[in-house]
């Protein structure tokens, strides 16, 4: 499988506040052509920051990025402003949790899609509109012709999310980034959007990175899962391996604390403590203060990702105890 995205040792530090915050710390990830990778993590785990790095969406004056990001053979960190504009939307595009913030409220959705198409390609307005209509049909918006002339606020939550997907796909990108696109949706609509994304991915051969905090959503959409904690990837592998045989204590804790496994009246297993403060990370493994397996050594060195099975890695020095 050729690699659609290869991230090597990416670090992102925000320097705008009083203290620099290292939101992403040495992340390496790869995404194969036509593969769906779920980035799973809690708030402050760096999953969204990693995703946004792929489009260089961080304010350049208040952030520092090191490492390398290669998408379709191009180094994203080296792109000129002009190249970056073509790259965004043309090669990689993104969908967000809140379509209302991603769609412009003063233009109809149809106008926004045709404009996006014509910004990247020399094509007549009528042809662009035809493409937009086809996109609307593809994302299963009922009465698409009429909906193209609707303003974002006139659509329901699920429709807006579909319209945003159509907009993201307008310029035929090869990589789609999804930042919790179903979190704000109702359960019955969420599953529709997940199934739609799966179908589009299959038909268009898209590579998708899907950021979520919900393990269930990750299982529904992804081929592989990378679990993030405090700006680092702590475990990665196929969905089956990670869900059925998690090796990092954090992943194990997350899965063990799920209410689905418990019977009514049981005590839930919990991970003690709170997610870490990124401005004051402990030395060594960031999970050590909450980990029941932590050894003195864990508080000194940051464990590297190590192979624990075929295409399954975990960043823990005590993996021997987690089989």
């Amino acid at each position: 499988m050729t690699e659609a995205v290869a991230i090597e040792n990416l670090s992102v530090t925000f320097t705008g506040g009083s203290k620099p915050v290292r939101a992403v710390d040495g992340v390496s990830l790869s995404l194969g052509q036509g593969e769906v990778l779920a980035l799973l993590g809690e708030s402050g785990s760096g999953k969204s920051v990693t995703l946004r790095s792929l489009l260089r969406l961080h304010p350049p004056k208040r952030s520092r990025m090191t490492g390398s990001i290669r998408v379709a053979g191009r180094d994203v960190l080296e792109l000129s402003p002009g190249e970056l504009a073509d790259f965004r939307g043309g090669v990689v595009s993104m969908i967000f949790q809140e379509p209302m913030l991603a769609l412009d409220p003063v233009y109809t959705v149809g106008a926004q899609i045709t404009e996006a198409i014509r910004r990247h390609e020399k094509i007549s307005a009528a042809d662009a509109r035809k493409r937009a209509l086809a996109l609307f049909e593809r994302v299963r918006i009922p009465s698409p012709d009429r909906r193209l002339d609707a303003y974002p606020h006139e659509m329901s939550g699920g429709m807006r999310q579909r319209a945003m997907i159509a907009l993201a796909l307008a310029c035929r990108p090869s990589v789609l980034l999804a930042d919790e696109p179903t979190t704000a949706l109702d359960a019955t609509v969420q599953i529709q959007i997940l199934l739609l994304l799966r179908e589009l991915q299959r038909e268009l051969g898209l590579s998708i990175i899907f950021v979520t905090h919900d393990i269930g959503v990750a299982v529904e959409i992804a081929d592989r899962i990378a679990v993030m904690y405090a700006g680092r990837v702590v475990e990665s592998g196929s969905v089956r391996d990670v869900i059925r045989g998690p090796r990092h204590p954090y992943t194990r804790g997350l899965l063990a604390s799920r209410v689905e496994r418990a019977q009514k009246g049981d005590r839930l297993e919990t991970i003690p403590g709170s997610p870490p403060d990124l401005t004051a990370l402990p030395p060594g493994c960031a999970f050590a203060p909450r980990c029941s397996l932590a050894a003195p050594q864990c508080r000194e060195i940051v464990p590297p990702l190590a192979e624990v099975g075929p295409a399954h890695t975990a960043a823990c020095i005590r993996v021997a105890e987690t089989v």
Partner: peptide
């Protein structure tokens, strides 16, 4: 029943095949 069937499955080998409901809740 539809609400229950819409919950994401935890089993990678038994993912949802089709959405139990179409469209959004009416206004």
């Amino acid at each position: 029943a539809a609400l229950l069937a819409s919950m994401p499955k935890m089993d990678p080998d038994a993912r949802s095949a089709e959405a139990p409901l179409t469209g959004d809740p009416p206004n």
